Simulated scan of single mutants.
Amino acid sequence: MTSSSARGIYGHIGDLSPDYLTIPQTLTIGLRNYEHIAAIPSAIIQSAADKSQVEKQFKTHFGEMDTEAKYLEFFLEQFRFVKENKLPELEVFIAELALKKATFCSTIHRLYEQFHPTYYSLPNDTSLSLAQTNRCLESFQIMMQCMKMMQDKGLEIRLGSDGANGGRINISELILLCKYGFSVADAFKIATINGAKAMKIEDQVGSLETGKQVNLLIWDKDPFADYTNFSLGKTIIKDGQILNKAMW
């Protein structure tokens, strides 16, 4: 968990270790800003029987969870397990998160890049069979449906990179959001004002308003016409100054 006296408290909650607090536990003590949509299933899969079942399910289809890629692919398999076995519990949990005005960062590129090319990279996991790749893709779609459900219920989603090359990752996140059911307008909101509000700096950045900092991206081609234009050329303005290409 990280914090700043001026910017509130944020939690990296819901990992696979039983030594860590769960999202429901931290909700009761007032935490509202969470990292990573991928942690949602761990709040639902709590019993020893459920944990054993999803682990067995993953091993049947993917083998041992012995690499970072497999570890990340397991998060996707958890979404499939929840949809197939715990959907009512998921719906109740999302309603509770919405009631308490929780926010989550996306961090979807980190999962997608394990099994599928992105606009700038090849898959990390080269050991996957076609059937395994397709299963990851199906599970990823289930995760995106969950995230859309969360937004439709009023939860605010924030952009999250969780890796090196954060600029490229964030562009990939925008493309993936639009590819899997979010509007371009929603993607822009996720990338701007939602994060600013969670950090309590929406009076400084996050939207185009008088008195706010002039930090802008201006795309050469309109993303509203085609979301793949997110990956094309752009002008970067930082603190009101146009950056030279050598600077970015």
Rank of each mutant, 00 (worst) to 15 (best):
P88F: 12
P88Y: 12
P88E: 03
P88I: 11
P88D: 05
P88R: 03
E89S: 07
L90C: 07
E91I: 15
V92D: 14
F93V: 01
I94G: 09
I94D: 01
I94T: 08
E96L: 14
E96P: 04
E96N: 11
L97M: 15
L97E: 12
K100P: 09
K100R: 12
K101H: 15
A102F: 09
A102V: 11
T103W: 07
F104Q: 02
C105L: 03
S106P: 06
T107Y: 02
H109N: 15
R110G: 00
R110D: 10
L111M: 09
L111V: 05
Q114A: 04
Q114M: 15
F115Q: 01
F115D: 04
H116S: 09
H116P: 05
H116I: 03
P117S: 02
P117R: 03
T118K: 13
Y119I: 09
Y119K: 07
Y120R: 06
Y120V: 07
S121C: 11
S121H: 05
L122M: 11
L122P: 00
L122E: 11
P123T: 00
P123C: 01
P123H: 04
N124W: 08
N124H: 10
N124L: 15
N124C: 06
S127A: 13
S127Q: 15
S127G: 05
L128H: 08
L128N: 03
L128W: 08
S129G: 10
L130N: 09
L130M: 10
L130H: 05
L130A: 12
A131P: 11
A131K: 11
A131F: 11
Q132K: 06
Q132G: 02
Q132I: 13
Q132M: 11
Q132T: 04
Q132R: 02
T133W: 11
T133L: 12
N134L: 15
R135C: 06
C136Y: 09
C136F: 14
C136V: 00
L137S: 11
E138H: 12
S139D: 15
S139K: 00
F140T: 03
F140R: 03
Q141Y: 06
I142L: 14
Q145P: 06
C146W: 00
C146Y: 05
M147W: 04
K148A: 14
K148N: 13
M150A: 13
M150L: 09
M150I: 03
M150K: 01
M150V: 07
D152H: 11
D152V: 08
D152F: 09
K153G: 10
G154W: 11
G154R: 04
E156L: 09
E156H: 11
L159M: 13
L159P: 01
G160D: 08
G160P: 04
S161H: 05
S161L: 08
G163D: 07
N165W: 14
N165M: 14
G166Y: 14
G167K: 08
R168G: 03
R168F: 15
N170R: 07
S172C: 14
L174E: 01
L174P: 00
L174C: 08
I175N: 01
L176T: 04
L177G: 01
L177K: 00
L177T: 01
C178W: 09
K179I: 05
K179Y: 09
Y180S: 07
Y180F: 15
Y180D: 08
Y180A: 02
G181P: 10
S183R: 05
S183I: 03
V184Q: 06
V184I: 13
V184A: 08
V184P: 08
A187K: 00
F188S: 00
F188H: 01
F188I: 15
F188V: 13
F188Q: 01
